[in-house]
Amino acid sequence: MKDSIKAELEHEIEFTVNENKTVPKLYPESELFRTMPEVFATGFMVGFMEWACMDALAPHLDEGEHSVGVHVNVSHCAATPVGMKVRAKVRCTAVDGQKTSWYVEAYDEKELIGKGSHDRFTINVERFNQRVAKKAQSPS
């Protein structure tokens, strides 16, 4: 990771909620999920916040690096219908070696829909993939 990543870095992204990002689509294998209202799912909102953090970090990563989420503490405080734009606003609150910490917020066109904190860890993709492959091959 480059030295250019600093606390107080801010970033925003936008997305229009479609039916594929609603609660019934989060786990279509579950009858409980399939029968829920078609609103922006908490799981997809968290992913949207992570996306904003990844996008903010991308210019500060070296070749062969990526970041992975390691901690999420987010509240989802308002429902968002299909077709509405959502905006994620993120601010880096700390850089500690390969770990970055973020304050995250999401808004739809009407109000704040979620907020909290998120930590990411910068990894070497090749080494990470090797560890995952080794784990998959080892007996339980």
Results as ranks from 00 to 15, higher is better:
Asp55Val: 12
Arg34His: 01
Val39Leu: 14
Trp51Lys: 12
Val46Glu: 12
Arg34Asn: 00
Thr42Tyr: 09
Asp55Ser: 13
Ala41Met: 08
Pro24Met: 09
Leu57Trp: 12
Val23Tyr: 08
Ala41Leu: 08
Ala56Lys: 12
Glu63Cys: 00
Leu26Trp: 09
Glu63Gly: 00
Val46Ala: 09
Phe33Lys: 04
Val39Glu: 07
Pro28Leu: 10
Met36Glu: 03
Glu29Thr: 12
Met36Trp: 04
Phe48Ala: 03
Val23Ile: 13
Tyr27Thr: 06
Phe33Ile: 08
Val23Asn: 00
Glu29Tyr: 11
Glu29Val: 11
Thr22His: 10
Glu19Thr: 13
Leu61Pro: 05
Leu32Phe: 13
Asp55Tyr: 10
Pro28His: 10
Thr42Pro: 02
Pro28Glu: 09
Lys21Gly: 12
Leu26Lys: 03
Thr42Asp: 04
Leu61Ile: 09
Met49Tyr: 13
Glu50Ser: 05
Glu50Ile: 11
Cys53Pro: 03
Gly43Leu: 07
Leu61Glu: 04
Val23Leu: 06
Thr35Gly: 00
Val23His: 02
Leu32Trp: 09
Asn20Arg: 15
Ala58Gly: 04
Leu57Tyr: 09
Ala52Lys: 11
Lys21Ile: 15
Glu38Ser: 15
Asn18Val: 07
Val39Pro: 08
Met36Ala: 08
Pro59Leu: 04
Val46Cys: 10
Asp62Glu: 02
Glu50Phe: 07
Leu61Asp: 05
Ala52Met: 10
Ala56Gly: 06
